[in-house]
Amino acid sequence: MSASPLDLMDDYGPEKVVCVSDTRSGMRGVLVIDNTARGMGKGGTRMSTSVTVEEIARLARTMTWKWAAVDLPFGGAKAGLVGDPQGPDKERQLRAFARALAHEVPSDYVFGLDMGLTERDAAIFIDELRDRGASVGLPAELGGFPYDELGVTGHGVAEATDAALRHLGRDTAGVRVSLQGFGAVGTAAARRLNQLGARIVAVSTSEGALTDPDGLDLDLLLKLRAEAGDRCVLEYGGDIRPLGAELRVPADVLIPAARQDVIDVALARELPARLVVEGANLPTDRAAQAVLSERGIVVVPDFIANAGGVVAAAYSMDSRGSSFPPSADVVLASVSARLRANTITVLDAASAGRRTTHEAALAIAQDRVLTAMRLRGRLPQAVL
């Protein structure tokens, strides 16, 4: 049974849960604004047949921590639309969703790109609300910053990986990397890691897992990805295994960059990788994190490793009313600097406090959010 919105609330939020529907278009959706102590709520908008209020609330909370962890002045929020992103009614449902949230957008929330949405969908949002500030992630022709084209999130995941390896006394050159997921995040991370000398030994898509202990031909695989989508692993040929095998192949680094809740306690007990860098949101649960820590496996948490998109979103938020979008070089340099520094900070804090990296990262983020809540007078008098 799905959790009630009231059951999702704690001292941090959510501050607002807005459920909307439209019978004519079949639209059903939800907006969760989690915590705005550090700034207005910001987080991506996703579309999937399996969207739930609880899922969006969890992701909104992750955004609260992610913004605080990178120390940028925004709060956590997330929106979700129940539907098929490949379906014929997508545009009608997007427009109905935008209309239904017209009281919240863009004053309390700004649409963004997440699973199931494209730059063209962002253009639909601003067209429906007649407001360029209603969404980020717009096509370059409309003044937007091309997140997916530049692969800012995946680039940041790779930079965090390199920083963690160096912190552990390893050189990225020659390191074996396995990636679960070969979409926007996975491909960009693979490309950057390949530039740094890493050996990509496994990737997976919905069609299965492709492995090669000697290293995959990444240039060929990227070409096939552009031509055949998820079928790229089949078109490449070679050793194709069932989906999930990429988590267990011999590798030094595992990057789960697909979906949440993929590493449980059972898998954590047998995971061969010695470094896990969370490219996806919420790929491990707390019990699994404890097992990985006990085994000495270092984990770079999701809201540290995949915050590259957040840094780019901050630039996009600032440039919504400007005719001069930020340059790619400036954004990528900022992503690299912030994520490398944050990775080292969290690893050092975890080591000093003898706790998991998730606990250390969360403590840093929570302290920043609580400080903002205290300064704004949002805490009970006894807590002040």
Rank of each mutant, 00 (worst) to 15 (best):
113 L>M: 13
114 D>T: 01
114 D>L: 04
115 M>N: 01
116 G>H: 08
118 T>C: 01
118 T>D: 08
119 E>S: 10
120 R>T: 13
121 D>E: 05
121 D>F: 01
123 A>Q: 10
123 A>S: 14
123 A>P: 02
124 I>M: 09
125 F>H: 01
125 F>A: 00
126 I>Y: 04
128 E>S: 05
129 L>Y: 02
129 L>F: 04
129 L>P: 03
129 L>W: 04
130 R>V: 03
130 R>Y: 00
132 R>K: 15
134 A>K: 06
135 S>W: 03
135 S>Y: 01
135 S>D: 03
136 V>M: 03
136 V>P: 01
137 G>E: 09
137 G>S: 12
137 G>Y: 06
138 L>F: 09
139 P>Q: 14
140 A>D: 03
140 A>E: 15
140 A>Y: 00
140 A>C: 00
140 A>L: 10
140 A>M: 11
142 L>P: 00
142 L>E: 07
143 G>Q: 05
144 G>P: 01
144 G>D: 01
145 F>S: 13
145 F>A: 05
146 P>V: 15
146 P>A: 14
146 P>W: 13
148 D>Y: 08
148 D>G: 11
149 E>C: 00
151 G>T: 06
151 G>Q: 05
153 T>M: 06
153 T>F: 02
153 T>G: 03
153 T>C: 01
154 G>T: 04
154 G>F: 08
155 H>I: 01
156 G>H: 10
156 G>K: 12
157 V>C: 06
158 A>E: 07
158 A>C: 11
158 A>Q: 09
159 E>A: 14
159 E>V: 06
160 A>P: 02
162 D>S: 09
162 D>K: 07
162 D>V: 14
163 A>T: 04
164 A>E: 04
165 L>F: 04
165 L>G: 04
167 H>R: 14
168 L>I: 00
169 G>L: 04
170 R>D: 09
170 R>F: 13
170 R>T: 00
172 T>Y: 00
173 A>L: 04
173 A>H: 13
175 V>Q: 15
176 R>H: 14
177 V>C: 12
177 V>P: 06
178 S>V: 08
180 Q>C: 04
181 G>C: 04
182 F>P: 03
182 F>V: 03
183 G>M: 02
184 A>L: 07
185 V>D: 02
187 T>K: 14
188 A>N: 09
189 A>G: 05
190 A>R: 07
190 A>H: 11
191 R>H: 10
191 R>P: 00
192 R>V: 09
193 L>D: 05
194 N>Y: 03
195 Q>C: 06
195 Q>N: 08
195 Q>G: 02
195 Q>H: 13
198 A>N: 11
198 A>T: 09
198 A>Q: 12
199 R>N: 09
200 I>L: 15
201 V>A: 13
202 A>D: 08
203 V>D: 11
204 S>G: 03
206 S>I: 13
207 E>A: 15
207 E>H: 15
208 G>E: 07
208 G>V: 07
208 G>W: 10
209 A>L: 06
209 A>Y: 02
209 A>I: 12
209 A>T: 15
210 L>Y: 06
211 T>I: 10
211 T>Q: 03
212 D>T: 05
213 P>N: 11
213 P>C: 12
215 G>S: 11
217 D>S: 08
217 D>W: 04
217 D>I: 07
217 D>A: 11
218 L>A: 05
219 D>M: 00
219 D>H: 12
220 L>A: 14
220 L>M: 13
220 L>G: 02
221 L>E: 12
221 L>Q: 08
221 L>N: 06
